[in-house]
Computed example of a mutant assay.
Amino acid sequence: MNKPYNGQFHIELLNPNYGCAVRVTETIARLRTEYQDLEVVDTPMFGRMLLLDKVMMTTERDEFFYHENLIHVGGLAHPGPRSALVVGGGDGGSSEELLKYSTMQRVVMAELDRGVVEASKQYLQKVHRGAFDDPRLTVMIGDGKAFVERTDQRFDIVALDLTDPLGPSVQLYTREFYEACKRILNPGGVLTLHVESPITRPQAYQRIVATLKAVFPIVRPYMVYVPIYCAWWGMATASETVDPLALSEAEVERRIAERGIGDLQYLNGAVYRAMLSLPNFVRALLAEPAAVITTDSLLVDEVGDPTFKYDLVARK
């Protein structure tokens, strides 16, 4: 087995002045997919880790910080989700969380890169936990943006499990794309997504939330710490009618039990309510004017060079 790291650190920049490092002991798989470089590596801290173009995506031991909270804040606020679309999410983690709902009848994953799905099936079983074998899941390989814009299907939940808006995916952070997502939501449906970090990319965070508010009347940003992202990470729900803040701690616990959602390592009623309570510095950030992102005014923020994130090294 190829071992180029040999105990060295994988170092990733979150902005030009800040980053994080994870020791890697072994490369389990390395390949070039149709769209990107893919690696599955082993780490003492987090177990197996997926990297795309040298960017850390998910790991066996910390995936629940991201996937549980991306899905269940909006999923529990919905009165009874039966159908869901995941745009991206080729590792299967978001789909696995959606399939925990006893009410869920249909999940569609629209993933661009077949290579990510196949590698995840083979090497990341502790992330997807067999979701790809669930007959309720349909995997559509292709452009998720095009799928959303063209489909005549409708969903109770649309989850945007995307890479950062630093390359082609920036088109999926626009008002036009959020409007397309709104079109395919059933009445009472919920859009859920990550919105970057108010710590490492505050202007991007501001603009994404402002763009959601230009499309949906109810937008609820919330904060989650994700270890391999090395920062408090922003997520949000957006809806015409569904408001996660309307749920009490007791109601969250009741819905978790009623819907048969088991094996939650992060989320409970108290945590649910706490995540929606924004710190003062985030409130102040969101109170500032921010330009809406459109196809004619794409996200350009404090990072400057959009390739910075890929300027990575592995050092002792």
Rank of each mutant, 00 (worst) to 15 (best):
V292M: 13
V116I: 12
I199L: 11
L285R: 07
Q8A: 15
V117Y: 04
E96S: 07
G304N: 14
Q153N: 14
Y229A: 09
T237P: 09
L299Q: 08
D143E: 09
V271E: 10
D42W: 13
K182Y: 12
A159V: 04
Q203Y: 10
D263E: 15
A210S: 12
R207D: 11
P135A: 02
Y18H: 02
G92H: 03
L14V: 11
L172Y: 00
G260I: 07
F9A: 10
I28W: 03
D143A: 02
V148E: 00
E149G: 03
K316W: 14
R48C: 05
P187S: 02
H67C: 08
L276D: 00
M109T: 03
Y222R: 13
E288I: 05
A119H: 06
D133Y: 08
L298N: 14
E68P: 12
P187H: 05
D62M: 01
D37E: 15
R32L: 14
G234W: 07
I293R: 11
E176H: 01
R129P: 06
A146N: 08
F46Q: 07
Y173K: 00
G189A: 01
L245R: 15
V55L: 12
A291H: 13
M140S: 14
L267D: 03
D42G: 00
L31F: 09
G142W: 12
I71S: 05
M49H: 09
A257T: 15
R315C: 11
V224I: 15
G115S: 00
T294K: 03
R201Q: 13
Y229N: 04
R30K: 11
K126C: 04
A180F: 07
K100D: 00
V190D: 06
G92D: 01
Q125G: 14
R254L: 08
S83E: 15
R259I: 07
H72G: 03
E68G: 12
K3Y: 10
R129I: 01
P16C: 10
Y178S: 01
V148C: 12
V313P: 02
F65T: 05
A257D: 14
K309N: 04
V73C: 03
R283P: 09
L14M: 14
L99Y: 05
M104R: 01
A291F: 07
D305W: 10
T211K: 07
S277Y: 05
C181K: 00
K100T: 00
I199S: 14
E176V: 05
I228L: 13
M140C: 08
Q203C: 02
L191P: 07
E179I: 04
M56P: 04
